[in-house]
Design a binder for these strands. Structure first.
Lengths: 128, 128, 128, 128
DNA sequence: GTGGTCTAGACCACC
DNA sequence: GTGGTCTAGACCACG
């Protein structure tokens, strides 16, 4: 498990870790039922504080992406277990972010087709 | 010019203002050459400090979305004046964000078509 | 007399006018003894307030670059009349600015020769 | 880290701080990878508000001279990481400033050789 | 009237 | 501990 983290930059490290792991699950780098590295492992790999990693894991857990078991550590949950939870709120948030991204894309000179192609190829990267 | 701002919440107010204005420009609520409200106006409308609004305007200025003309206040720039500059960096950032969004969408149970439809309708909401 | 003015941007318009005129005198576009356009002329050409132009002329006068005569308007002074005045202060200011420019040039990757070549060609542009 | 700041005077304090730090990096007073004083430290040394220092740091950051690492504070970037980005715009700005300086130098009675010597010795003051 | 700057003091998230 | 954010109120230069 190798994560791209930008130590400087505005986004908090624990959020970056969370994001990278969500991407990793989406891409199938780690599948449902598999273990995430331990907090200590990941912290030492990235050269950061264990608290920071722990915070990321707690975030992932609270969002329903993983479960933490005292014996097995952090385990990725299946997609179907996630569906339906917070459905409405999530949709709203997603739509808001897409609205912002598409506004910016348009102002940067992308046309509709280019934008949609980018969206499609991003999603395609997720397919197993 | 009415902006939806979440006073509590993690995203800094000045970033929210920036985002809302980018959306507004994208949708055509304000067109190239038109004025944004003055710093004082917007600040009093939103019930916040002028410096917070000023910070948002400076951010928009540094990103090339607006200009501040000493005589006319803040003016929206044309879309074409933006193209090309830092093109590559922007693409990379956009792709990264779409990757994250599509990973999360997939894990939340959306299929490819649903995701793309959402992207398309977000872009369609922008000015023709 | 055509001046490049950036209406937005950090530098006050009257300072930009002052700078452009100093460059113009240096290049020989206007020679010692010649007239500058009247305040009204220049203001209408640039589409700005007469007060702004007037302020620029007052600045040039206070620095000794021009003289204003009620009958003849603003007249460019000769180089020799300028020499010696404020000699020490000017040198200090110039050295300070060159220090900053060379620091920045170095950090931007220019080597000494490139920097000096730029300085030389800038000065060469001034020779009549 | 001691900076010469002119509290009264036209140039904003945060710009002066930025300029002094750029010079400091150029001269090698602080090298790549080294830390700048913390915002609070510098603010109390200079007897000014933290926000003013913060503004200077953000400016330096936006220009690519420093990074702010949440763990280590503000860190000077290597010179090479700067090269190439916005190269053209920078050159234009530098040439414009040199044009103004050399025009003024000529009108103040400096000849070409004197001017170039000043440029050369300014650059020579920078770190080898 | 505008935006830009600064202060003094405060709170917060991050690590 | 750090930098980031925000406030309330003020002053200034610009045009």
């Amino acid at each position: 498990m190798i994560l791209k983290i930008d130590m400087s930059g505005a986004i908090p490290i624990y959020v970056q870790i969370r994001n990278e792991i969500v991407k990793g699950i989406g891409k199938g780098d780690v599948s449902a039922g598999e273990n995430l590295p331990t907090v200590r492992q990941l912290a030492s790999e990235l050269g950061i504080n264990t608290m920071t990693v722990s915070k990321a894991y707690q975030l992932l857990k609270s969002e329903g992406f993983i479960e933490t078991d005292r014996r097995k550590g952090a385990v990725v949950k299946g997609t179907h277990e996630l569906k339906g939870s917070l459905e409405g709120l999530y949709r709203e948030k997603l739509e808001g972010e897409l609205e912002l991204l598409s506004a910016e894309a348009k102002l940067r000179g992308l046309d509709k087709q280019e934008f949609i192609d980018l969206c499609a190829s991003a999603f395609a990267g997720m397919e197993v």
